[in-house]
Amino acid sequence: MPSETPQAEVGPTGCPHRSGPHSAKGSLEKGSPEDKEAKEPLWIRPDAPSRCTWQLGRPASESPHHHTAPAKSPKILPDILKKIGDTPMVRINKIGKKFGLKCELLAKCEFFNAGGSVKDRISLRMIEDAERDGTLKPGDTIIEPTSGNTGIGLALAAAVRGYRCIIVMPEKMSSEKVDVLRALGAEIVRTPTNARFDSPESHVGVAWRLKNEIPNSHILDQYRNASNPLAHYDTTADEILQQCDGKLDMLVASVGTGGTITGIARKLKEKCPGCRIIGVDPEGSILAEPEELNQTEQTTYEVEGIGYDFIPTVLDRTVVDKWFKSNDEEAFTFARMLIAQEGLLCGGSAGSTVAVAVKAAQELQEGQRCVVILPDSVRNYMTKFLSDRWMLQKGFLKEEDLTEKKPWWWHLRVQELGLSAPLTVLPTITCGHTIEILREKGFDQAPVVDEAGVILGMVTLGNMLSSLLAGKVQPSDQVGKVIYKQFKQIRLTDTLGRLSHILEMDHFALVV
């Protein structure tokens, strides 16, 4: 994948999101292997301009796509893939009243899908469409860049269908997702969380590099694949309309690839034109409109599966009536509230959605109805927002919020430890010299600072030695090549209790 991002070429006709291997024109390309080798690009942008032909009021008969309808489940399912879809609609009884809503608040519980998330729908649909058009064949390999849930859905379907599955996901995604993927037989590649989507090191860039190296491999490409919004247009939206008897006044959905909100909203605009569509985008993402909503100094966020630093091709923002931004604290607070007060075992993005819903639905009156999409299960986040310690460490809970008995030293300040200034190293000294210094002084790690004293990161003896043994660096290389740029900081005025929580999850903390 090139470091400079080429513009994806656009073909003359058809839909841009065809499933299957992508040609340089962004659509299915038939021909000899030699032709494909000559024409197939190194990668295709996940934010390529959409060429979708959908228009409100256009006859369904003019759609270029294969459409399906929700099917009634048999008493005995032939395999677990038949437990994807037909998820329950559940009334939220307490939270709406707590925040003064007059309307009825309903939750579409997508964590009841077989793999635990709304992404099971698009995973199965992308595979079925690729099999139907002859792209996927027995023994082929599926590769997908994902925040985890699409990966789980694909790995689940691949396990049943017999495909090899490789999932490329950023490091910030939970260990629970990784464990589930491994249990399903998927191979996992992790990428830096802070890598831009168009960087060769991003999950998108690495996935395309693997595709170019592995024979008979395919990126189904949830960011561009029409099967993504079509899955929701054909099934999720129809289920909502049936469950609500066609009567709903507002739908609120958090947005990642945009397939969920695009597919549902398009069908609702056709069948229930008075329904307002509300999009939820986390602070630090750029999906919301108008652009002024996205202006923030924050560039990272903890909530998973929603928000991006690019506009995915499948996201149709014209069908969203209003956007709201959400933050991590309210997302996790509301997710825990949904679990504790409503018994809905949902993930953090569901918290984002409901946090926005109780604001947006203030305009609705008694007798009206708001539906929220709860995308995934708490299963993926047992060591994250479900953990009091994690919430404390991230600053989303305060010590006084917890009532468990603490040891005698818990409320003492870090400054009472009488710490001395640490050994520091410059980023320009060599790895070999740094190892000598650390061994001589008896230290395992040291902060790396520039000549102005600005902290650049941390270097550890173990990481340097393993990097040297693996051949990633040489003793003569500058130590700046092996620094940890993500590390926890703590102030002298913070409590030892807070430091204790940090050290339970990290090997060190830097006192500043």
Rank of each mutant, 00 (worst) to 15 (best):
A8K: 11
A8I: 10
G11V: 10
T13N: 11
G20D: 10
P21N: 15
H22I: 04
A24L: 13
G26K: 10
L28A: 10
G31I: 04
E34S: 06
E34K: 12
L42C: 10
W43P: 08
I44G: 04
I44F: 15
R45E: 11
Q55I: 11
G57S: 14
P59M: 10
S63V: 05
P64F: 12
H67N: 07
A69P: 10
P70H: 10
P70A: 10
K72T: 03
S73G: 13
L81R: 07
K82Q: 12
K82A: 09
I84M: 12
D86L: 03
M89C: 06
K97N: 11
F99P: 03
F99I: 15
G100Y: 03
K102R: 14
K102W: 04
A114Q: 11
K119Y: 01
D120Q: 07
M126N: 02
E128S: 07
R132V: 06
R132K: 11
G134A: 10
G134H: 08
I142E: 00
I143E: 00
P145F: 00
G151T: 00
G153M: 06
G153R: 00
L156A: 02
A158I: 02
A159L: 04
V160L: 11
C165F: 04
C165V: 05
P170H: 01
P170S: 07
S175K: 08
V178I: 07
L181P: 00
A183K: 02
A183T: 10
G185F: 02
A186N: 01
E187M: 04
A195T: 10
R196F: 08
H203V: 01
V206Q: 06
W208D: 11
R209V: 09
L210V: 07
E213N: 13
I214P: 04
I214Q: 04
P215K: 08
P215N: 04
N216A: 08
N216E: 09
N216H: 11
Q222W: 00
Q222G: 00
R224M: 06
P229C: 01
D234E: 09
T235D: 07
E239G: 00
L241I: 04
K247G: 08
K247V: 02
L248S: 04
L248Q: 09
M250A: 05
A253R: 04
A253T: 15
G258W: 00
G258I: 00
I261K: 03
I261V: 14
K267Q: 15
K269C: 13
G274T: 04
